[in-house]
Design a protein around this nucleic acid. Structure first.
Lengths: 339, 339
DNA sequence: GGGCATGCTCTAAAGGATTCGATAAACTGT
DNA sequence: ACAGTTTATCGAATCCTTTAGAGCATGCCC
C-alpha cells in the first residue's frame, strides 16, 4: 500500500546497484555470499514482490502455460488436469485454465489471450472443428502446443491420448464373451477423432465375432450423465431389444444405469452396461461399473513433461503417443438375459 | 516466427508514431477515423499481437483475476466457477484458477504468484486455517480480495455465501415433518465456518422440535462421494438405528445412497437422505435426491460482479452477502419406517 | 614491480506499450 | 487578416527487470 518496493528500493537502502540485487535474488554465483544474504534479508524485510511482467518483458519467458479443454467440470478432463497440475507445480510454472465448450471461437480467443500474456506453451484438447491455422498461430508465435485426447488433421504437433479403438473393442469383447449378441453403442459423436475411433473399435469387435453391425443400435449424442439418463429411454424402446450397452464414457454409463433403474430394471442383471475412463466414481456407482481405464493420469503427466522438455530444449517429443487402455470388470455387466 | 511485430513496426510501415498507433488500436477519439481504420487494417495484415505485459508494466493493470478454491473438481465449486467465468468473460478479464486443497501453504504460493503477475484481484474460498495476514498481503499490494463460501475471522473483506445454518435447518425440518425423530448428520468439519454453521442449523432445528440432540448421531468427516459411500456402513451400524440422514452435501448424500443400496436397503424408502447444494446431478440420482439449493450461480455471479465493481471503483460491496437457500423435495426422503 | 587472473559490482542499454505536454494544421468568428 | 479554438499527431519519459560489457580491487607468479 504505502510504497511500491522494487529492485531499486532494495538497492538504494543497501547502497548497491539494481544489477547486483537482481543477480543476488536469483542466486547468481557472480554475487558474493555475504552480499547475497544481506540482499535477500532486506528483500524479505521490505516485503518485496518480484515483478514478473517486467522481467518477462526483458527475458521473453513468462512462466505461464495455458491449458484448454472442452470442459474442466467433466471428471475425465478434471483427472487429466490434476495430473498436469502436479507436474507443472514442481517446475514453478503458473497455468491458466479454460473451457472452450467446443467453440472454436472461444478457443481462439483463449490462444490469443495467452499469446498476449506471453505464454510459454499450451496444452490443449482441441475443440470440434479446430482449423489447423489456429494451432499454427500459437506455434508461429513461438508458443509450442501439445494436444491431448483429440487430434487435428494436417498438423504435426505432439499428441497424447488413449488408444480409443482398442479400448472400446476390449469392452465390446467382454460383453460378447458374456454371451451378448445384440449390443448398443450409446453416446459420442463422429465429429471428433475420438468419436470415430471408438465407434470403429465397437464395429471391429462385432465383426471379428461375426455379429452383424446394425446402425440402428447406435444412439449417438450423449456425453454426460444427463445425456445417458435420457438415452436410457431410447435404449429401452429399441425394437431390437438389445441386452447390453457400450457407453461412450463413465458419465453416460452411470446416467444410463440411473435411467434403467428408474424404469424398474436392474442394471448389471437385466441390462449390461460398460463405461469408459474408469473415473473415481465408477467403482462406487450402484452397481459398480465395468469400464475401461483410459490412463488420464499418464496422459496429463506425459503431456506436461513433453511440453516442459520442449521448452527446455532438451527433447522434441513429436508424433502420436498412444496409451494402452485396460479393462476393469465390475458388477454392471453379467451374462445375457432376455427382457 | 519471422520477426516480432510491435507497435513501432506498424507505425513505421505507415509513417506514423507509436503514440498514434497505440491510441488508434484502443479506439481513442483522439485519432481520426480514417487513420484508425488504416492502422487497424495494417495491424491485422501484419499479424500484430498485443503485448499485455509491456502494457501492464506501464498501466499497472494486467486484466488478470485469480480464483482459488478448495478443489475445482468438486461440482459445487465447479458450478460457482462456471458462473464466475461467464461473468468475467464479458469484461475481457483472464482468470487464473487454482486449487489449494486446504493447504494454506499452497494458497499463499498462489497469492504470491498472482501478485507477481500483477493480478487485478482475487476471488477465493479460503483454505482451512487461513491466517488473515495472507489475505491482507493481497489487499496491501493493491489486489482486492473477495471471499466465497467460507469466512475468515478478523477480516472485513466482502464475502458471498449461502445461509448455511438456515439451509440445513430447512432440510432437518423437512425430515421432522415426515415423522423422523432419530436423524443423523453425516459429513462436514468443525474447522470451517460452513461446517460450524451447518451443524448449528441441524441442532437448532432439532431443539425447536423438542428432539434431544445426540452427539453420537454425528458422523463428521466425509465431504465426497467416496466419503459418503463409506459413511453408510457407519450409519447403518449405529445402535440408535437412525431413520434419516442430513448429509453435508449432495456428493456425500449420493455416495451414501449408493452405500445404502449396496447393503440391500432402498434409499428413500428404508432410509431418508437429504443432500445440500442441488447439483445438476441431484435430480438424476436414483432415487432423485431431496436437497437444498444453495445458490452457487448467484454466489459466483455476485462475487464476480462485486470484484469488477470494486476494480472500476464504482462500488464498495463490503460486508457479508447471504443467499437464502431453498428446499428441493424429491424421492430420497419419505415417511419414517422402522428398520 | 609488472602482467594476469579472479572476484565482485556497476553503468547503461534494452524490452514494448502508454501518456503527458507540445506542436502543427485546420477552422471559427469578427 | 488575425486571435482563438479545435483537431490530429508526435516526442520523450516512464513502468521494472535483465544482462552485456566495463571497471576496480585484490592476490599471485615470475
Amino acid at each position: 500500500m504505502a510504497q511500491k518496493i522494487k529492485l531499486s528500493t532494495i538497492a538504494e537502502t543497501l547502497g548497491l546497484s539494481t544489477a547486483t540485487v537482481s543477480l543476488a535474488l536469483r542466486d547468481s554465483p557472480l554475487v558474493a555470499g555475504a552480499t547475497r544474504d544481506k540482499i535477500k534479508e532486506q528483500a524479505r524485510a521490505l516485503g518485496y514482490i518480484y515483478n514478473r511482467r517486467a522481467a518477462s518483458l526483458r527475458t521473453s519467458r513468462s512462466g505461464i502455460i495455458g491449458v484448454v479443454v472442452h470442459d474442466i467440470m467433466n471428471p475425465f478432463y478434471a483427472e487429466i488436469l490434476k495430473s498436469i497440475e502436479s507436474e507443472l507445480d514442481r517446475s514453478r510454472q503458473t497455468f491458466i485454465l479454460s473451457n472452450h465448450y467446443d467453440s472454436v471461437e472461444k478457443q481462439r480467443t483463449f490462444i490469443e489471450t495467452l499469446l498476449q500474456l506471453g505464454g510459454d506453451g499450451v496444452i490443449m484438447s482441441p475443440a470440434i472443428g479446430t482449423p489447423p491455422e489456429d494451432i499454427r498461430l500459437a506455434e508461429d508465435n513461438n508458443m509450442p502446443a501439445i494436444l491431448i485426447a483429440r487430434s487435428v488433421e494436417g498438423l504435426d504437433v505432439p499428441i497424447f491420448r488413449g488408444d480409443d479403438s482398442y479400448g472400446i473393442s476390449l469392452a465390446t469383447n467382454h460383453l460378447i464373451s458374456l454371451g451378448h449378441t445384440c449390443i448398443a453403442m450409446v453416446g459420442g459423436t463422429d465429429q471428433t477423432s475420438t468419436g470415430r475411433d471408438r465407434y470403429q473399435g465397437y464395429v471391429n469387435a462385432l465383426r471379428r465375432a461375426n455379429i452383424e453391425v446394425d446402425p440402428e443400435l447406435r444412439i449417438p449424442g450423449p456425453r454426460s450423465k444427463l445425456g445417458g439418463f435420457e438415452a436410457a429411454v431410447t435404449f429401452l424402446s429399441l425394437p431390437q431389444k438389445p441386452t447390453a450397452a457400450v457407453c461412450w464414457n463413465d458419465l453416460v454409463a452411470i446416467g444410463m444405469m440411473n435411467g434403467i433403474a428408474r424404469a424398474g430394471l436392474v442394471p448389471g442383471r437385466d441390462v449390461s452396461v460398460t463405461g469408459y475412463d474408469d473415473l473415481e466414481e465408477a467403482s462406487i456407482a450402484t452397481p459398480a461399473l465395468t469400464t475401461v481405464a483410459n490412463g488420464q493420469t499418464e496422459v496429463g503427466r506425459n503431456a506436461a513433461r513433453a511440453l516442459l522438455d520442449k521448452l527446455s530444449g532438451s527433447h522434441e517429443p513429436d508424433g502420436i503417443h498412444l496409451i494402452k487402455p485396460e479393462m476393469r470388470i465390475r458388477q454392471s455387466t453379467g451374462p445375457v438375459k432376455q427382457r
